[in-house]
């Protein structure tokens, strides 16, 4: 590289000179490609460190600006539709139907009157972000299934959402786990609209796309009907750390 000179009077370069000199532009581009490759190779470790630091900083950050930095913690809002209608205690309904003996419709108050359980686990999104120790409470899905009486030919469940587009699925065996529930609160407050309220699914051991927001329908089916993202290539059995080609720590 050409040594930068210390004097303050540069030579008149002339037009020919403008096309000569050190190819700094090319070096910058190549340097960035090298840094980019190094970042891909080592970024996973670096981001872990940054996450740890940001978690501490954001706990004491009243402005919430750190939440906008990559790995700044917190949930990210994903919706597959342009807008989602709002439902409240008056007009919210959850139906349980399909291959059951007694189809049921629940209001929010009905669900609140049933036995509640509270779980605290990490939330892991398949796109990488993870929110530590998040509390959910609500009604065990198995309780709702028992109340409607599952017919023997049913092997799976389809979940519908009042955003009008999202669907999810679970096998009957997965749905009966004690850490799968219909959640009414999140972080000990009623589930907000942005987080899928008033009622969302919570499947603790699976990637968070399984925990469908704005839950409106539970339908027992003969076989698994892949959900919205699953038709687009996501794994149907979405165990955290054992699916979607990822190796995250299990959440439940």
């Amino acid at each position: 590289m050409e040594e930068p000179r210390v004097d303050d009077a540069p030579d008149d370069p002339g037009e020919e000179n403008e096309r000569h000199g050190a190819p700094v532009g090319r070096r910058v581009v190549l340097g960035m490609l090298g840094l980019g490759a190094a970042g891909v190779a080592l970024g996973s470790h670096v981001q872990d460190r940054i996450d740890a630091v940001l978690a501490e900083v954001s706990a004491k950050d009243p402005t919430g600006v750190t939440g906008l930095l990559p790995g700044g913690g917190g949930f990210r809002y994903y919706s597959v539709t342009s807008s989602v209608p709002k439902r409240n205690a008056e007009n919210y309904r959850l139906t349980v139907g399909g291959l059951v003996d007694r189809p049921m419709t629940y209001r929010l108050a009905d669900l609140q009157a049933m036995p509640q359980q509270r779980l605290v686990h990490d939330v892991q999104c398949v796109t990488g972000w993870r929110v530590p120790k998040t509390a959910f409470s609500g009604v065990r899905l198995s309780a709702l299934l028992a109340a409607s009486g599952v017919r023997p030919e049913a092997t799976a469940i389809r979940f519908d959402c009042f955003d009008g587009a999202y669907t999810e699925s679970l096998t009957l065996q997965q749905a009966r786990r004690s850490d799968v529930m219909v959640a009414l609160t999140m972080q000990d407050k009623p589930v907000t609209h942005a987080h899928g309220g008033p009622v969302r699914l919570y499947a603790a051991p699976m990637y968070f796309y399984k925990s469908a927001k704005w839950l409106s329908g539970i339908t027992l089916t003969k076989s698994v009907e892949p959900g919205y993202w699953e038709k687009l290539g996501y794994d149907v059995d979405a165990w955290v750390g054992k699916s979607n080609g990822r190796s995250d720590d299990p959440t439940s």
Binding site: E2, P4, R5, D8, D11, G21, P23, V24, G25
Partner: peptide, 20 residues
């Protein structure tokens, strides 16, 4: 193409410009 090669090359005056 001519402007690309101008952008690529750093002459003495460029280092002087940066420092100043």
């Amino acid at each position: 193409r001519a402007d690309l090669s101008r952008l690529n090359r750093f002459g003495r005056h460029d280092w002087h410009w940066l420092r100043t």
